[in-house]
Nucleic acid binder design. Sequence first.
DNA 1: GAGCAGGCGTACCGTACGGTACGGTTCTAG
DNA 2: CTAGAACCGTACCGTACGGTACGCCTGCTC
Lengths: 215, 215
Amino acid sequence: MALAIKVIEETFTPRQQAVLTAALDLLVENGDGLTMTAVARRASCSKETLYKWFGDREGLLTATVQWQAAKVRMPFVDRTHLSAKTLRSSLEQFARDLLTTIIGEVSITLNRTAVTHAAQEKDSLGNIVLENGPMAIRRRLKPILEAARDARLLRFTSSEEAYRSFFGLVVRDVQIRLLLGDKGLTQSNVESNVEADVKIATDQFLALYGAKTNT
Amino acid sequence: MALAIKVIEETFTPRQQAVLTAALDLLVENGDGLTMTAVARRASCSKETLYKWFGDREGLLTATVQWQAAKVRMPFVDRTHLSAKTLRSSLEQFARDLLTTIIGEVSITLNRTAVTHAAQEKDSLGNIVLENGPMAIRRRLKPILEAARDARLLRFTSSEEAYRSFFGLVVRDVQIRLLLGDKGLTQSNVESNVEADVKIATDQFLALYGAKTNT
DNA sequence: GAGCAGGCGTACCGTACGGTACGGTTCTAG
DNA sequence: CTAGAACCGTACCGTACGGTACGCCTGCTC
């Protein structure tokens, strides 16, 4: 809980951000096998500086993931006047953002790195990614859903369940396949289908949870 | 393609299977950081034997994942006489198997290992997991769906789309959260909800794709 | 200009681990 | 009984990498 708030406070000097960018680039290129030496060389700084700024490799990695993950910004959705139409477009917006984020190379890298670390009892990176990924969306989406329910546009008993259904309908098997390196799922391949998938997912979600007047 | 067939052929002596079991145990315990020395010690064999049998670390890992992933067996579903009732129970069975597999410690470990390797341009493990996970389910489920469509029990244009919706409705955000080490999602926590989730997912899928007579 | 802080580059250290070599032991074949 | 294969245990080698130390340069302050 303190984490999400802390992230926003966390500020880095431009030079430090340049270092983090280099680290992220290497992460995208070589996966978790990034070397302190490599980062130092890429960022044209000394290893000593890296250790001074970030403590150790883990710290550098955490800073990189944190800094990058916090960049994922969800667009603000107008909640004041909800209609069937604005609700649909809001949902589509959410679906679109979720999908485009998930299929991005940076997101894939961050998720892979976090998964790798979760396999070693180090769940800090996993928590960061969770907090800035699924949980962030959940925090944003649930109020909308509940407002829509109050406005009799949606029907459900548990907003948690509704959120998770939405997530599933949007993400499907795309994320896990990308994480596993499925070559049948190139980025451009998925990208070109985003709009259609967004439409389908939204339609399906509304079919399941929309009040009768919605189609 | 040749891979899926090869897997079945692949046979290991009991002794070798004991070694693979040891390797899997260490994988579950320590994540991908398993050491050849550790495997040798755990399995009471010499490193030289490991290298003789599996070539190198990569080979041992591949053999372990392959051997374990192939153990995931989907129950056979009767396709001969489909009714609304048998269709529903088949779908529930699929959902149940998918969920229980995904939340298992072994599955989590295998997926994490494969994801880790996919981050290093080594996608062989990812392919194995994909082939024995999502793809295996898809291969099994799609014929059922198509048979159900022919029997006027389901309605869809693309069986691929229908399958992916089913997958999404069942898995939702459970797998990615487990892979990321979400502590709010303990195994027992999820386990106790499997039946309820299976029911919900099946209901939702039938609501979306069932012919009108189905509820 | 002297002193000093920040930071670059490089050399260095220790260790962990993949991979190999080798001696000793058990089992099987003939 | 002997030869040899299979395999265990362990010692060993080379390297890669995390982390530290140090020399040097730059720029800033008084």
